[in-house]
Each structure stands twice: as structure tokens, then as C-alpha cells.
């Protein structure tokens, strides 16, 4: 079930990615409406990160094309911010939290300029939003996993983009950080930004997103959460994997009989 989208902010056509001639992602076709909060969900090895990296042209695609705002990535780079998995970098790098967030203010054409007062103010604002301003002068190796993730998100906020692509922002993150990050995402959505998140936890997925893409090498479904988050489609995505099916069962039960909080 792939829901058609009029004037999508991101449109993917026939996207295929292969690693060593093994397909990691087959023939993906979908569109995303502007201003939505999208969850990309699927089992391990389903090609979630692969899809995200292919969208950002971090890995070569075998075929297909990707359009942001109906244009190629190259001409709209400034409007798109990418948050990689925090494990993808070495946190012993000699830099402070503020140094990293500042990096969000550079682009390929503005590498040689000095950052202005305004740039520094934007970086500070971004740190405030993720509640990390007190850590601005800390070395990045002194941060917990959740704090590292918040620094990455602050760097993306400093980019002042319109579309945010995030790879597993909630993985290995403490509860307080997760709450902070969710608040930031909601705030972004309220500002009309589009957010695209790789997510592995089905339980919270239903709560966080309003649009969902189910993926298992192929795109199984893409559409509003109420149409996509169904037992049939989830089973199809997780292809009979027992433990996950149990998880799905629990989740759906929870949805149908919400526990009332007094």
C-alpha cells in the first residue's frame, strides 16, 4: 500500500541500492507530503539506513532517482539536514560541543568565511533547544550517548534546514534525552518542517509519527499512520519473525485498549 502524494517534498522513484551485487533496497517508490513527521520502520537489515544514505547520496544508487522539492539534492543541499548515527564518528575528536554545533553553519560555499555573531547566536539557540547550552564548552568525549545525540541534533538545527533526515536518533538514548528530542521534533513540525526518522521501536513509533513507511528490502507500505500501522502490513514487513510479531501484538493491543492515566 503506497499512498500517492500530491506535490511531495521528497519523491523517490525506482530506487535500488546494491552492496557487492546483493540488493539492499529494491525498487523503492514513495512520496512524502510537506510538514509530515515520517517514521521509517522495519526489521534489522531491512535497508532503513541504506535508504537514508542513498537519499543523501552518501552511497551510490544502482538505479532510480530522488527529488527534494522537485529538484536534485545538489541544488537544494542547504534546505536538507542529515543526522547520522552517533556511532558513525569518533567522539575523541579534539573539539568542544560548541565547535561541533558551529559546523552546522558552514556550507561548501561558505567554508572560508568567518562565522558572524549571528551564526554563533544560531548555534547557541540550537544548543538551548536540545538543553545542552550548559555543556557548550565541554569536550565531546565527556558526553553520554543521549547527550551526543542531542549535540548531533543541535548541529542539524543550526543548519536551519526545511527537511531533516535522522538515522536512529533514539537508539541508545536515555529517557530524558528521548523526551527532549521528541519535543524538538514536534517543535520543528509546528514550524512546518518535514522530518524523516529511521526508527526501530514499534511501540513508540505509533506515538511519534503521523506518516509511516514500512520497509523490508522493498517498501511494504507508505502512508498516514492509521492506514499503515495495521497487523496485516506489520506482519508482512516483519515476515513471521516470532519475537517481533509478539511485539506487534502487544503494540496493537495497547492501541486498541489504551491504558488510561489518571
Amino acid at each position: 500500500m503506497i499512498k500517492k502524494v500530491e506535490n511531495p517534498i521528497l519523491e523517490v522513484r525506482d530506487l535500488t541500492v546494491t552492496y557487492d551485487s546483493k540488493p539492499a533496497l529494491c525498487d523503492a517508490n514513495f512520496g512524502i507530503p510537506q510538514g509530515s513527521m515520517v517514521g521509517l520502520v522495519g526489521p534489522n537489515g531491512a535497508g532503513k539506513s541504506t535508504l537514508l544514505k542513498a537519499l543523501m547520496e552518501l552511497i551510490p544508487k544502482s538505479s532510480g532517482n530522488v527529488k527534494f522539492f522537485n529538484e536534485n539534492l545538489e541544488s537544494v543541499r542547504k534546505k536538507i539536514a542529515y543526522v547520522p548515527q552517533k556511532e558513525s564518528v569518533d567522539w575523541d575528536f579534539p573539539a568542544t560541543v560548541f565547535d561541533i554545533v558551529e559546523m552546522g553553519r558552514y556550507g561548501s560555499k561558505s567554508l572560508f568565511k568567518r562565522l558572524t555573531k549571528n551564526d554563533k547566536e544560531i548555534a547557541r539557540e540550537a544548543l538551548t533547544k536540545v538543553k545542552m547550552l550548559d555543556f557548550a564548552d565541554r569536550h565531546i568525549s565527556e558526553l553520554s550517548g543521549g547527550q551526543q545525540q542531542r549535540v548531533f541534533i543541535a548541529r542539524a538545527l543550526a543548519q536551519k534546514a526545511d527537511v531533516y533526515l535522522m538515522d536512529e536518533p533514539f537508539a541508545g538514548v536515555d529517557v530524558a534525552s528521548e523526551k527532549t528530542i521528541v519535543n524538538v521534533l514536534v517543535q520543528l513540525q509546528n514550524e512546518g518542517k518535514t522530518i524523516f526518522v529511521v526508527h526501530h521501536n514499534l511501540q513508540s513509533a505509533a506515538e511519534y509519527f503521523d506518516w509511516m513507511i514500512l520497509i523490508n528490502k522493498n517498501i511494504v507500505a507508505s502512508g498516514p499512520i492509521k492506514d499503515v500501522f495495521t497487523p496485516e502490513l506489520l506482519q508482512k514487513t516483519y515476515d513471521g519473525n516470532l519475537t517481533t510479531l509478539e511485539q506487534i501484538g502487544q503494540t496493537i493491543q495497547k492501541q486498541q485498549f489504551p491504558i488510561r492515566e489518571s
Binding site: 544514505k53 547520496e57 536538507i80 539536514a81 558513525s88 560555499k109 567554508l111 572560508f112
Partner: peptide
């Protein structure tokens, strides 16, 4: 290339996405 190297040495993926 100071700024380019600093950004790319810390996070090669991010550097690529901003067009370096």
C-alpha cells in the same frame, strides 16, 4: 582548507551532505 578538514575529519558523512 582548515574548516573543510576539521568538518570532514570529525564526520565524513555529514561533510559530504553539506557538499564537501
Amino acid at each position: 582548507f582548515y574548516q573543510h578538514l576539521k568538518i570532514a575529519l570529525f564526520d565524513a558523512g555529514f561533510a559530504k551532505t553539506i557538499g564537501l
